[in-house]
Design a protein around this nucleic acid. Structure first.
Length: 590
RNA sequence: GCCGAUGUGGCUCAGGGGUAGAGCAAUUCACUCGUAAUGAAUAGGUCGUGGGUUCGAUUCCCACCAUCGGCUCCA
């Protein structure tokens, strides 16, 4: 059964599990119509059309029925039909979604079906030989899901589940999910006091509490300093603009539903219509436009710690990962064509530098996001322009030997993107960083430079971020380190724990000394037992705890306790400072 | 926006048509403490918001808001 490690076998196993689920549902609820039921990363699902959603009780009834089907060890047989016969069979079975699927296959297709007992499903397979192997499974949740993934279609009822060859593996998996849940930034981040939300402020508008705000401040300084070293110039641009600006950029035509608009666009003749900015590009371009530019001025690299506002649909908000107001390490590079590749590479290099600094290097994947040529209305520019810029980007990516996947339809409306994705604790990927090549907006905004030959030319713009959006970065940090952020970025680096009230003065003095040395220090001055103070500092994931009692005060030392290593014994303050400095400088993850 | 679940003091949760409890946390006093959970006392909630039904609602109904899990969309 170690076959289960094999991805192909696992997929087959889960797919058969999905059929068992569908079989059970058809037995219990014959009126439910079958849609599709694939294997997915950690299990499987099946979509059903039914008037009522599945309740918790029904879910456990279905599980019981599935157990029966497994115990029956039903052989699974494949058979094939031509299209007409397949269609007839699905009509006879009264499965309209299956009929729709059959209709899309070519006329001469030979269509496969799988049968287990009285259950027959249109399916490409493959499947296990019988239903008996699926010894351990669990239906994990129900959810609504659109037929064929389009919001224009009917919403079906999806049942998610997972399955394993034996109970131990299922148990281990569920324990792992439980463990991941404890690291969920949305739970841990609130518990540890990084952020909160308030219902009368609104969705997607989190309050960053002192700890969260401090981490973001530290990250922002780090990013701005590094970018300055790399030749960026900082701008500060307005958070809103008249609709006129967005009409030039194309946001008004292509991104309007994503913007917060102030004023009534229907009354545009008499009322000034403003919109909060969803992106920084059109603002930062204005810096370029303040004077005439020569090829000698290029490349120009602008950066900005930029707060953006996007009117996401109400069901999309999630913790700090998906919000309506967020701050991004924004930047735009204005470059000549012969500078494009080098500058693009440098952007990737900067992104990697940041990823390494945060310790995310093992959780990264790259995605080349292209436009969708079948939905040209979503984008500005024509196919020729898109092909040209995508080819250019492809060449650069291939030169870099980046291992990337390609995603159709994920481009920005003005150009293709390289998305750098980070896996979170649940294995789900989110885009943290994106680097885009844009051949179009410079022309729209009339950005030019005089080239060597004296001709006015439009530059190319690289839109990029170096560390992504700070809120999301914070969320990923909390999950990655289970709240125990590396020392260099920990909101509270050291907590001084006086043993009794008579040590309070010494504690204050020690704090002062460490603060002057550049560390973030708090004193626990409550009248509590030392054990309790240590316990709480540990729960709050403070990297270093300094215990101060009679002996330490007499010796001029501190008893050091580290978050991970535990007791480090008595040290002089100077040697402690040296240790902390070293750890901060190397950005170690301890 | 769509489907579903949830919403009781800082946290975890109980309760239930007659205007609310427990544990932990907090505050005060005692204890002056070397790795949490001694003793005593105190404080804290218009039971998410707004309507409706009712003599009376936190408990029933409706709407809205927020949170969570998905779908769609996206940094």
């Amino acid at each position: 059964m170690s076959d289960f490690q094999d991805a192909g076998y696992q997929k087959t196993f889960r797919h058969t599990s999905a059929h068992i689920l569908a079989h059970a549902v058809k037995r219990l609820f014959p009126g439910a119509k079958l849609a599709i039921g694939p294997a997915i990363e950690n299990g499987f699902y099946y979509d059903f059309d039914r008037d009522e959603p599945f309740s918790v009780t029904e879910l456990s009834q279905i599980e019981d029925e599935m157990k029966k089907i497994v115990r029956e060890r039903l052989p699974i047989e494949r058979f094939e039909l031509d299209r007409a016969a397949a269609r007839a069979l699905m009509i006879e079975k009264d499965e309209p979604y299956k009929v729709e699927l059959v209709d899309e296959l070519p006329d001469d297709a030979v269509i496969s079906f799988y049968r287990q007992g009285d259950f027959v499903d249109l399916c490409a397979g493959p499947h296990l030989e019988d239903t008996g192997a699926v010894k351990a499974f669990k239906l994990t949740q129900t959810a609504g899901a659109y037929w064929r993934g389009s919001e224009k279609n009917k919403m079906l009822h999806r049942i998610y589940g997972t399955s394993f060859p034996d109970k131990e593996q299922l148990k281990a998996y569920l324990a792992m999910v439980e463990e991941a849940r404890k690291r969920d930034h949305n739970k841990l981040g609130r518990e540890l006091g990084y952020f909160t939300t308030v219902d009368y402020i609104g969705q997607g508008l989190p309050i960053l509490l002192p700890k969260g705000a401090r981490v973001i401040q530290l990250l922002t300084r780090f990013v701005e300093d590094e970018e300055e070293h790399r030749g960026y110039q900082l701008t500060k641009t307005p958070y809103m603009a008249k609709s006129d600006l967005y009409k030039i950029s194309g946001h008004w035509q292509h991104y309007r539903e994503g913007m917060f608009i102030i004023g009534d666009p229907e009354q545009a003749d008499t009322t000034e219509v403003l919109a909060m900015r969803p992106m920084t590009c059109p603002f930062q371009f204005q810096a370029y436009l303040t004077k005439t530019r020569s090829y000698r001025d290029l490349p120009i690299r602008y950066n900005e710690t930029s707060t953006l506002f996007r009117n996401e649909s109400s069901g999309e908000m999630h913790g700090l990962i998906r919000v309506r107001q967020f701050t991004i390490s924004e930047g735009h590079l204005v470059v000549a064509p012969d500078q494009l590749e080098k500058e693009f590479r440098d952007c990737v290099d900067l992104a990697r530098f940041m990823i390494d600094a945060l310790g995310f290097q093992d959780d990264v994947s790259y995605r080349f996001s292209k436009w969708d040529p079948t939905n040209t209305a979503k984008y500005i520019g024509d196919a020729k322009q898109w092909d040209a810029v995508q080819d250019t980007m492809q060449v650069i990516l291939d030169h870099m030997k980046l291992d990337y996947t390609t995603a159709i339809g994920e481009a920005a409306f003005y150009g293709p993107k390289l998305d750098i994705q980070i896996k979170n604790v649940f294995g789900k990927e989110d885009t943290l960083i994106t680097i885009q090549i844009d051949f179009q907006l410079a022309e729209r905004f009339g950005m030019e430079y005089a080239d060597r030959d004296g001709e006015k030319k439009h530059p190319i713009v690289i839109h990029r971020t170096s560390i992504g959006c700070y809120e999301r970065t914070l969320a990923l940090l909390i999950e990655k380190y289970a709240g125990a952020l590396p020392l260099w970025i920990a909101p509270e680096q050291v907590r001084v724990l006086p043993i009794s009230e008579k040590h309070l003065d010494a504690a204050a003095e020690l704090k002062e000394r460490l603060v002057r040395a550049g560390f973030r220090v708090e004193v626990d001055n409550r009248d509590e037992k030392i054990g309790k103070k240590i316990r709480e500092a540990q729960m709050e994931k403070v990297p270093y705890m300094l215990v101060l009692g009679d002996q330490e005060v007499a010796d001029g030392t501190v008893a050091v306790r580290a978050r991970k290593e535990g007791d480090l014994g008595a040290q002089t303050v100077d040697s402690l400072i040296e240790r902390l400095r070293e750890e901060v400088a190397t950005r170690k993850n301890t």
